[in-house]
Amino acid sequence: MTPVVELSKVRKVYPGPGASGGHVALEDVTFEVARGEFVCVVGPSGAGKSTLLRCLTGLAAPTSGEARFGGEALRSVPAAVGVVFQDYGRSLYPWLTVSRNIELPLKVRGVPRAERSGRTADVLASVGLADAGRKYPWQLSGGMQQRVAIARALVYRPDLLVMDEPFASVDAQTRFGLEDLVLRVRAEFGVTVVFVTHDIDEAVYLADRVVVLSRPPGTVSEVVDISLPGPRDQIATKRMEEFARHREHLLGLVMTR
């Protein structure tokens, strides 16, 4: 079976002064994500996590190497990819209501009006915001805004959902709720997830596999299988001995290299 998305020998250089012809963000990154998998990408700051995400979604082209989605080289963001950005405040359009933000990707895909509003209501209910459709994003709390962004990325039923440190700017309690929400919608929509984070606990809690990036320039230093049973639970899972073991191992990787 072909993987949903794969990177092979991806190198990304941002032009500028320097011996290597600029800033090398990624150096020889290779990994793949199978259908239905939940993969987290962790690494020290500056390891090129965001660059990796841009190459993975087709927002940026690698300098060399190749990014493939469904076996085909990425040239732009495929219609079957959903992206959730870290900064929901800049990613949600303030001039559109919550419903219209979510309807936008359906509109550009030519989905008829009646179906659009039905699907928007459904996905809003899935993220627990059934009553927020008529509000504007800026009238909601940060956690609610990020749920709107997740709903907007899910409404066109993508095969792959890519999230870039989506919960980095919400408080801890909200974050736990959102993590469980992501696990729930992943099961509900049967979507493959790549989740970039700098939080090791979050990665272990969510992932089937964790890709660890090295210090810059980023390469894959290790891929760790997370053998925790599902469904995960914020208290029970995090109390497990295995959780602690994975956590320690990953922290060691991120801190020392």
């Binding site: 927002l59 963001v77 950005f85 800049r90 359009y93």
Partner: peptide, 18 residues
């Protein structure tokens, strides 16, 4: 215009003219 707003539009599949 915020580059994140533009990236979002590309990610959502909004065609260039739109």
């Amino acid at each position: 215009v915020d580059p994140v707003a533009l990236d979002t539009a590309r990610a959502l599949g909004v065609p260039p003219a739109r």
